[in-house]
Each structure stands twice: as structure tokens, then as C-alpha cells.
Design a protein around this nucleic acid. Structure first.
Length: 389
DNA sequence: AGTACCGGGTTCTGCCATAAGG
DNA sequence: CCTTATGGCAGAACCCGGTACT
């Protein structure tokens, strides 16, 4: 079926999907935050590097450079990333440093943050307070936020639009995403919150429209399931997600129920694979199975039951399959119990050796023994050694 | 007791291109 | 022209264990 056509058919439905209908007032988001007053002095914010003699346009602000040096900033890195910031004559590096320090960031962390995302020093005191406060709606303490900033300064500082951030939080909440999932989202994919509301909304609407086009009843739940199972989906482009969904529908000839289950189940994770990787991995798997005279339905079942298989590079996957085949495992058992593919070649090899040495009968006992945790496998092996097979 | 099913944890940023705004 | 804001991209597994079922 032509996916584009389906998408175009459901345009009318999109109007009925009012994802913002339950937006709450901003008072609810700001609950627990100290009230921020817009009138708090701008002069204070700009006081740190107010140079008496403005540098000539196009050259760097030397007193700013000196301040940054004192803070331990890697000027070479900063210059390479955002050269314009070093030419500004009104910045807030001391305010930022003090602010982060009060939140528990070490001198090294602060220096690293500024080095990697210099524009951070252009944010005002009140802006920082407000943004931090919005993040604190989602986290229990400051330490967690500092850790994220240290990991990815850009995620926090790239956007100066606090209102947009607030709208994003309200939007995601309105989708029924639970606080714990929201916190997971902000921890692992902080960029989601710096996306424009429109961008996030577009992705959500895409997901919902996919559900509707597949005849699903609960388009909101569908989108929510995908987002909570694949927290990175909102930092992907709709182009990529659309291409991947389209490709899987066609390549596996999925019917509507199969597709609905796949995408909001384990398949959610493979939607954010780059489109080329998905195609390459799929084609490689297809060829491999064909060369082993598998049926088309085997391929489909394998992907439906264990879509992570498409995440694995051709090289690794072929190595695993070869290892299993060499160890006396039939491919059809793998198709039935694909979870064995979770394990590394080294682990599989070792387990096959251990079991074959004991004369383990896979035909009779199945291969589930291969995908146990290490602890359970060893216990199992001990028992087999005592009792024989 | 052993197994099947299922979901969880880990950490996913840093760079580039382009639009927007001045 | 400049800087800032925003969107987009590449890269690609392995393991653990709770709990319900038998």
C-alpha cells in the first residue's frame, strides 16, 4: 500500500487531533519556583564585562578574554566554536559562573561548559534563573541538571526562548506523558526541550496520523507509546521517521495491525535509525536469510518478534548467525527465539562450547538456554554438569 | 524449580547548514 | 555583512533480573 497516499487521505483527521487542548496554565508549571520578576535589573546583568573603552568592531574583547582565562576557559576551543561571542562587549560570564557554582558545578565543569558553548555567557541572570526553574519542575535536585549541562551544554543554552521551553513541557504533559517519563526524556534527550514547540508538535502529529492511517483507535496513546519507548524520536527529523515507517511497511508487507503493534512496541526504537542504515541492515539480513534458504515469512517474523535485529550492523549480525550455525543451531530456532541475538559473539561462542562439550541437545531442549543472564546461565551449567544431559 | 515473557539500564552529542533577525 | 536560533545529521549492542506461569 502506498503510504504517502494514506497520509494524504487522513489530512482531514489531523484537524480533529487537538493535542494542545488540555494545556494547563503557566501557574501550574511554575509551581514551586520562586517568582521571577521581569524588572530585575538589567544593569546588574551587564555589569561584569562592561568595558570602558569599547573595542573596535571585528576584534576580540580583551577584558572578556582575560575574564574567561581566569575562569579556566579553553579560549581556542571557544573561538573555534562561536567566535562572535568573544567580540561582544556585554557578557555575563561572572554571573553565569557564580550561578552554576551555586548549583553545585565545579570550576572545571563551568570552564568546560563555557569552552564548549560560549554563548552561555550571553544569558542574563534572570534568564538563567527562569530556565533553571523550568528544568527543576522536572528534576528532584540541581545535581541532576548540572550533570546534564556538563554532558551537553548546548542542550540547555542553545535556545534563549524560555516561553517555548515552558510550552514544550506543557505540551508533552498534555500528551499524557508521566512525570517519570518526562524526566527520562529531559535527561537522555535534552534537546527535545530546546526544539521549537512547532517541531515537536509536528512529530507528534506525524505519529498520530500514522496511527489513524493504520486504522488505530487511540492515536494519542500510540504517539505516547512511541515517545516513551523511544525517547530519541523527538530529536529525529520527520523526514527520517516517515522514510523508515514507509520502508518497513513496504519491505515487510505489514498489515495494519502488525504495523501498529510493531511501531508502538519494540519497533519504536528502530524508527530513529538513519534511513540508510535501516535499509542497509535490512537488505543484508534479507540476503543472509535467503542464502540460508529461509522463507520470506521467516524474515518478517524475525523482525516482528525482535526488531532490534535491524539495529545490528551487517558485519556483527552475520558473525553472530555464523557463530550459531557453526555451533549446531538451526536458523529456524533462531527465528523462533531471536533473543539469542542480543548476546555478543564471544558470549555465544563460549556458551555453545560449554554446552556442546556436555552434549547438550538443542533439538530436544531448545535454545532458550543461550539467552539467560550470566548468573542464570552459570547456575544452569552447574546443574547440567552434575546431572548430565 | 525451572522457564517464558517482558522491560529496564546504559548515555546520545557535537558539529554543520540555513533561516531569522539586526 | 554580522550573530543568533534552530533543524538536521551520523553512528549503531549487550546484558540483567523481576515476576507470572507451569
Amino acid at each position: 500500500m502506498a503510504f504517502q497516499k494514506i497520509l494524504s487521505l487522513l489530512k482531514p483527521h489531523l484537524n480533529t487531533i487537538n493535542t494542545l487542548s488540555s494545556l494547563k496554565t503557566s501557574a501550574q508549571v511554575n509551581k514551586g519556583c520562586p517568582q521571577i520578576h521581569a524588572s530585575v535589573g538589567l544593569h546588574r546583568f551587564y555589569s561584569t564585562t562592561q568595558t570602558s573603552t569599547a573595542p573596535p568592531a571585528g576584534s576580540e574583547n580583551h577584558s572578556l578574554l582575560e575574564n574567561l582565562r581566569v575562569l579556566g576557559v579553553d579560549l581556542k576551543m571557544a573561538r573555534q566554536r562561536q567566535p562572535g561571542v568573544l567580540r561582544k562587549n556585554q557578557t555575563n560570564e561572572h554571573g553565569l559562573a557564580e550561578f552554576l557554582s551555586q548549583k553545585g558545578a565545579s570550576r572545571e565543569v563551568i570552564a568546560s561548559i563555557i569552552s564548549r558553548f560560549p554563548r552561555a555567557i550571553t544569558r542574563s541572570e534572570e534568564h538563567l534563573e527562569e530556565r533553571w526553574c523550568l528544568w527543576r519542575n522536572i528534576f528532584q535536585n540541581d545535581t541532576e541538571i548540572v550533570k546534564i549541562l556538563d554532558r551537553s551544554p548546548e542542550s540547555f543554552f542553545r535556545s534563549s526562548d524560555n516561553e517555548n521551553l515552558e510550552k514544550n513541557i506543557l505540551f508533552l504533559t498534555s500528551l499524557g506523558i508521566l512525570p517519570q517519563d518526562l524526566s527520562k526524556l529531559l535527561t537522555k534527550a535534552p534537546r527535545v526541550f530546546s526544539n521549537s514547540l512547532e517541531l515537536n508538535r509536528t512529530m507528534v502529529e506525524l505519529l498520530q496520523s500514522v496511527c489513524v492511517s493504520l486504522g488505530g483507535q487511540d492515536h494519542e496513546g500510540f504517539a505516547r507509546n512511541i515517545i516513551t519507548r523511544n525517547i530519541y524520536v523527538l530529536i529525529r527529523s520527520t523526514k527520517r521517521v516517515t522514510a523508515n515507517i514507509h520502508f518497513l511497511l513496504e519491505a515487510l508487507r505489514l498489515n495494519k495491525d502488525e504495523a501498529l503493534n510493531l511501531f508502538q512496541g519494540h519497533g519504536a526504537q528502530i524508527l530513529d535509525l538513519s534511513h540508510n542504515s535501516l535499509q542497509r541492515n535490512f537488505k543484508s539480513l534479507q540476503n543472509k536469510l535467503k542464502s540460508l534458504s529461509c522463507r520470506r515469512s521467516d524474515l518478517k517474523n524475525l523482525v516482528l518478534n525482535y526488531s532490534q535485529v535491524l539495529f545490528v550492523s551487517p558485519e556483527t549480525l552475520n558473525a553472530k548467525l555464523d557463530c550459531l550455525l557453526q555451533g549446531g543451531i538451526h536458523l529456524k530456532w533462531v527465528v523462533e527465539k531471536p533473543k539469542v541475538l542480543d548476546f555478543s559473539v564471544i558470549t555465544l561462542k563460549q556458551r555453545l562450547e560449554d554446552l556442546n562439550a556436555l552434549g547438550y541437545d538443542f533439538e530436544k531442549n531448545g535454545i532458550a538456554v543461550l539467552d539467560m543472564s550470566k548468573k542464570r546461565f552459570e547456575a544452569k551449567l552447574d546443574k547440567l554438569q552434575v546431572s548430565g544431559c
